[in-house]
């Protein structure tokens, strides 16, 4: 059985894993990181999106063994000292969720979007989140939340640099 060493939300884990173990099952069943849900199981819905070395991936479509030597960030790694990440806060403020099932993936995909485009237009947000499905909200409030987070995060970045 291959042995992997992977950093998840800032903590390094070493584990023996079956090659067929999916990253999402490793995160949930082995590490207890149940903040990352399994939605469709067919690479469509994006609910299981995490960051691997900073880039969004659907963790149902990556083997745990492929995460060997990589750094994974899940929704559980975003908040610091009980404080919500600005993206989480913006989803809360703008009421960008109803049932909440898509929310972890939606937030991780939104962070990936802002990594490349710190000030996206509404169309760019919709395009950037095309791989994440929400069956409740109609997306309006999600788009609003990402706009708000983009403003908040750029504001925070300015405060740090000035």
């Amino acid at each position: 059985m291959p042995r992997i060493k992977v950093e998840v939300d800032g903590v390094t884990y070493e584990d023996d894993v079956e090659p067929r173990l999916l990253l999402v099952h490793y995160l949930r069943d082995r590490l207890g990181k149940v903040g990352t849900p399994i939605g469709c199981d067919t690479t469509n819905c994006g609910a299981c999106t995490v960051l691997m070395d900073g880039l969004s991936v659907k963790s149902c479509s990556v083997l745990a063994v492929q995460a060997d030597g990589r750094a994974i960030t899940t929704i559980e790694g975003l908040g610091i000292d009980g404080q919500l990440h600005p993206m989480q806060q913006a989803f809360h403020e703008e009421h960008a969720l109803q049932c909440g099932y898509c929310t972890p993936g939606m937030i991780m995909a939104s962070l990936d979007l802002l990594r490349e485009n710190a000030d996206p237009s509404e169309d760019e947000i919709r395009e950037g989140l095309e791989g994440n499905l929400c069956r409740c909200t109609g997306y309006q409030n999600i788009v609003r939340a990402v706009r708000r987070a983009a403003d908040d995060m750029r504001g925070a970045a300015k405060e740090v640099t000035s």
Binding site: T43, G46, T49, M52, L55, S56, V57, K58, S61, V62, A109, D112, L113, G128, E130, G131, N132
Partner: peptide
């Protein structure tokens, strides 16, 4: 092709 997360992999 597909969406950003799929294009990463």
């Amino acid at each position: 092709v597909a969406d950003p997360a799929v294009r990463h992999r």
